[in-house]
């Protein structure tokens, strides 16, 4: 029988805890495949965040450090400085990266740290039960914006790629989505490129992945995938924001 799909050996052989319809699993796979294809699993060191993806340290077959909420870029900075030949990646959510860890991500990017950040934007705090995130959309109903996000009260959602791409340096920043096959393939390309650039010794790379949270959005998985197209992508346009070299 022909093998049409094989799980990457960079993913540990354990069941993921993510909710049905959540796209963390897809992004984990894309990261694992990129690491595998580049042949760097033996020197990869990952940083797990606080949030739904905290258990990422159990899901990747490589050395891992779990970081305090928001601090993954600082932790990754130091690991890369200690082991310059390692391939360091941080996995962060939107509350983690764009709220509590806003200083760390800005300065890691500004220093052009040779690390790769995978930024999961699902417009909500997932693990703590769906509170408003810095990326929640205007009008979005969450458990702490029960009347919808009022931009006059708490401002507009932050577009991380657009904000960081003004920095000087050799950074690469791209926004992708994983809500359909075409977008998943493009996301894979971007994530692999982010790792490839680190292998080549180039600077900081960040891939923002528009992701789903059907549980906290109160949607079916199918509705959630549609919501990414209809609501998220118009506010968060896909594409490369910096470092668009080949």
């Amino acid at each position: 029988m022909a093998v049409v799909f094989k799980k990457s050996p960079v993913l540990a052989d354990v069941p993921l805890h993510y909710c049905p319809g959540c796209t963390h699993g897809i992004v984990h796979r894309l990261i694992a495949e990129s690491i595998e294809e580049l042949g760097v699993a033996d020197r990869a060191i990952g940083i797990a965040p606080v949030g739904c993806a905290v258990f990422a340290y159990n899901y990747f077959n490589c050395d891992m450090q779990q970081a305090a909420h928001g601090r993954a870029p600082a932790v990754g900075t130091a690991i890369k400085r200690v082991h310059p030949d390692s391939i360091v990646f941080a996995y962060q959510g939107d509350g983690d990266l764009a709220s509590i860890g806003a200083a760390e991500i800005v300065h890691a990017a500004a220093r052009d740290e040779k690390i790769t950040v995978i930024f999961i934007n699902n417009a909500v705090y997932g693990m703590t039960h769906g509170q408003m995130a810095p990326t929640s959309l205007p009008g979005q109903v969450t458990t702490t914006s029960p009347y919808g996000r009022d931009v006059n009260h708490c401002g507009y959602p932050i577009r991380v790629c657009e904000m960081l791409c003004t920095l000087e340096g050799n950074q690469y920043m791209e926004r992708v989505a994983v809500n359909n096959v075409k977008n998943v393939l493009a996301a894979k390309k971007a994530i692999k490129k982010a790792f490839q650039r680190q292998v080549e010794g180039k600077g900081f790379s960040l891939v923002e992945v528009l992701s789903t949270c059907p549980t906290n959005w109160g949607m079916s998985p199918q509705e959630a995938l549609k919501w990414v197209d209809e609501k998220m992508i118009p506010y968060y346009p896909l594409g490369c924001y910096k470092g668009g070299d080949k």
């Binding site: 600082a74 690991i79 400085r81 760390e104």
Partner: peptide, 11 residues
């Protein structure tokens, strides 16, 4: 947190 990273990495 950088100290945490570097110390964790063995330095």
């Amino acid at each position: 947190n950088m100290v945490y990273g570097a110390g964790g990495a063995g330095a």
